[in-house]
């Protein structure tokens, strides 16, 4: 099976047309015609992940974040992206990223996280005008209302978050939860519009915690933590069909953020 066939499989779930204009999902490095010897799944492509791929004999790395996100002006060893890009080319490893295409796809990242956290009746939080089934974020319901604090602690455990930053716990109970994986500060207003009790996302800024409503709590569960489900989602998509070579979940795809508690 060739790289392009794996790409087609992923794109059937998460078409590249769903990616944002600033994004660079798709094949970043390598060849569509290369025969795949194995696949390694990760959130970020790092040197450690490249080492891991080499050790596993995998020549295709599928990541959530594209290595080439900001355009390169030169290919020297000035920074990590350049070093890794050059190494991938040298070692014949193809790098494929499913980033905002996987975020926006129906059943994509936020659905996946919602599923993990036990949300039901999920729908897209910010539907795309051209494709209402797709878009960033979801809003869904917990089967039974539960104390806000207990739910946040449960999220912390489920996602192994070092610490959750949150606004004032102005609600005792939570049932309707809106969430968006990755940096989703811009969707707070959307969460208010759907009357969510709680909005979960990552990379929230200081001012985001001044929620302009006394009825919703916002919480930052960490970028990596909210997006780790990408690995399981990609694994499910790819292994549903491919059986002729191994698909590995990276053990070296780790959170660059550490918590001192």
């Amino acid at each position: 099976m060739k790289v392009k066939e794996v790409a087609a499989l992923i794109e059937q779930f998460a078409p590249l047309t769903l990616q944002e204009t600033y994004d660079n999902s798709g094949l970043n490095i390598g060849s569509y015609e290369a025969e795949v010897t194995g696949i390694l799944l990760c959130v970020d492509v790092t040197e450690a992940v490249l080492d891991e791929a080499k050790a596993l004999g995998a020549n295709l790395i599928v990541s959530h974040h594209p290595l080439l996100f900001h355009p390169l002006r030169q290919l020297v060893d000035a920074d990590d992206a350049q070093r890794i890009a050059a190494r991938a080319v040298r070692e014949g490893v193809s790098l494929y990223a499913a980033h905002t295409s996987l975020d926006s796809a129906p059943g994509g990242m936020s659905f996946c996280l919602g599923e993990w956290l036990g949300l039901t009746a999920m729908r897209v939080l910010d539907p795309r005008p051209d494709c209402p089934d797709a878009g960033f974020g979801v809003v869904g319901e917990l089967t039974n209302p539960m104390p806000m604090r207990d739910f946040l602690l449960q999220v912390k455990r489920t996602l192994s978050v070092g610490a959750i930053r949150h606004s004032d716990l102005c609600r005792d109970q939570v049932q309707r939860v809106a969430l968006c994986t990755g940096a989703g500060g811009s969707l707070i207003r959307k969460a208010l519009e759907v009357d969510a009790d709680l909005y979960l996302s990552a990379d929230l800024r200081y001012n985001d915690f001044f929620v302009p409503s006394p009825s919703m709590v916002v919480a930052d569960v960490g970028h990596f933590e909210s997006e780790y489900c990408a690995i399981d989602l990609l694994y499910a998509i790819i292994t549903k069909k491919i059986a002729t070579f191994a698909v590995h979940k990276s053990e070296h795809s780790i959170n660059p953020v550490n918590y001192l508690v």
Binding site: F13, P106, G107, C112, E115, T158, D232, A236, I237, K240
Partner: peptide, 16 residues
């Protein structure tokens, strides 16, 4: 929570 990927994909992919 353990995700049942078969039904997850069935719901989100096959139906689509």
């Amino acid at each position: 929570m353990k995700t049942d990927w078969n039904s997850y994909l069935a719901l989100h992919l096959e139906s689509r």
